[in-house]
Computed example of a mutant assay.
Amino acid sequence: MIAFLKRWWADCPPYALALFLAVTPAWAVQPDEMLTDPVLESRAREISRDIRCPVCQGETIDDSNAPISRDLRLIIRERLVAGDSDAEVVDYIVARYGEGVLFNPPAEGANLVLWLAGPALLLAGIAVALAAGRRRVAPDVVLTTEEESRLKEILKE
């Protein structure tokens, strides 16, 4: 394996290395958004890992370049600087944008249906599969007289 990598590295064109370096993940958080206090910045990053971009839906606000994500990152940092706890910051964002911005919404109220639907459907599928397996009946097979005599010979031996 190492010999392969050495050979590949020697034959590798320069633009291939640039391509691999360009594929590395980039954070959308801009330097002008970062807080000078490392503790507050760490808290802000922790909170924003659980907040979904309202536009992108599959990305955190730290990963998204959408303007709304930038606004949410700034709001989180402003609230932390103002002295809010992590829970208060999340509650503030949920109050403004709804529970749809949370990657892990709480399992209560209407969300409880969503949390329980997956396991309930899994159990229902297993029950249907078991019921279908039990209903399966071996088909009636009628043996010819020649087959019956051969079967009797085999069973006598």
Rank of each mutant, 00 (worst) to 15 (best):
L19G: 08
R7T: 04
E46N: 08
E41G: 05
D63K: 14
N65L: 02
R77P: 07
A110G: 01
A16E: 07
V128S: 10
V137N: 03
V113N: 07
E46Q: 14
I75C: 11
G58W: 04
E157F: 09
K6G: 14
S48E: 15
N111A: 08
L116S: 11
E157A: 14
A120S: 11
N104W: 02
I47K: 04
V137M: 03
P13K: 15
Y15L: 09
G125D: 10
R52Q: 10
I61L: 04
L130N: 07
K156E: 14
I2M: 12
T60H: 05
D32Q: 13
A110F: 05
L116K: 09
D91R: 14
W9K: 08
E147P: 05
D86Q: 12
C53K: 05
G98N: 07
P31T: 02
A129M: 14
P106G: 03
L116I: 11
L72D: 07
C56K: 02
R134H: 07
L123Q: 06
W8L: 13
R43A: 07
C56M: 09
A66D: 08
V29D: 07
L155C: 01
R135H: 01
R136W: 08
Q30L: 13
D32S: 02
E33G: 04
S48W: 05
D91T: 12
E147T: 02
P38G: 14
L74H: 02
L123E: 11
T144V: 04
R49T: 14
R134Y: 11
P106Q: 12
L19K: 13
D91K: 12
A131D: 01
A138W: 14
E59T: 01
A120I: 13
P13T: 13
P13H: 11
D63P: 00
E99W: 05
N111E: 14
A16R: 12
R134A: 13
W9S: 11
E59N: 04
R77G: 06
A110W: 03
R7G: 01
A132I: 13
R7S: 06
V101D: 02
W8D: 04
A87M: 07
L72G: 00
D11R: 15
Q57S: 05
G98M: 04
E153V: 01
D91H: 06
R135I: 06
D11C: 09
R150A: 15
I126C: 11
W9T: 08
P67R: 05
D86I: 07
L123D: 03
V55S: 10
G83N: 02
I2S: 10
A3G: 04
A16L: 12
A26Y: 05
L80T: 10
L17S: 05
L121I: 03
S149G: 03
L40C: 01
V128L: 12
E78A: 10
P25R: 11
Q57F: 05
G83Y: 04
T144P: 01
L17N: 11
M1I: 02
V81P: 01
P105L: 12
I93A: 10
D62L: 15
L121Q: 01
L17A: 13
E146H: 02
E78P: 00
F4R: 13
D32I: 02
L5M: 14
T36R: 09
V39A: 15
A107R: 13
T145D: 12
T145Y: 09
T36S: 13
